[in-house]
């Protein structure tokens, strides 16, 4: 079995201009590693949605991406407010985004559904007032 590669990113809360940089960086790294373009697209989309959610809803956090022979695993951990009702949050169109972020084009309520759709496994672990950890896997 070959070694597992891990990348870690600290995401700054409320910095909309830099949001997406971690996802871009992962996309470039996966390209250099020779990962197929379908898998890269899935990882890039899912990770960006998670990254931007951390910025908008949770004041930042930490993203860890690990690459093995069989899959790519993304773990997004924040110390934000937590998600009160996961099944509601997963619904297409559900959003609590503030007006100022809506004016930037966010708030369609499609981020979490995209994360689900573009990954093979997704698990949300959340506790009110403590934070949220989302684990996603894309199979290779």
């Amino acid at each position: 079995m070959s070694e597992q590669l891990t990348f870690t990113y600290t995401i700054d809360g409320n910095d909309f201009t830099r949001a997406g940089e971690a996802s871009s960086s992962v996309k470039n790294k996966l390209k250099m590693l020779g990962v197929g373009s379908d898998a890269i697209r899935k990882v890039a989309i899912a990770m960006y949605e998670g990254e931007i959610n951390m910025v908008i809803h949770a004041d930042g956090g930490v993203i860890t991406v690990s690459v093995s022979d069989n899959d790519i695993t993304m773990v997004l951990a924040d110390k934000g407010p937590g998600i009160p009702d996961i099944s509601k949050a997963m619904q297409e169109g559900y959003s609590t985004a503030r007006e100022e972020v809506r004016s930037l084009g966010f708030g369609a309520g499609m981020g979490l559904p995209n994360m689900k759709r573009f990954t093979d496994e997704m698990h949300i672990d959340t506790e009110l007032g403590k934070g949220t950890t989302i684990t996603m896997k894309v199979h290779l």
């Binding site: 909309f16 997406g20 996802s23 871009s24 697209r41 989309i45 931007i52 930037l104 084009g105």
Partner: peptide
């Protein structure tokens, strides 16, 4: 929608 995030989405979706 013209802001930095527009470019991020464009870039990630090729």
């Amino acid at each position: 929608m013209g802001n930095r995030n527009t470019l991020a989405v464009a870039s990630l979706t090729d």
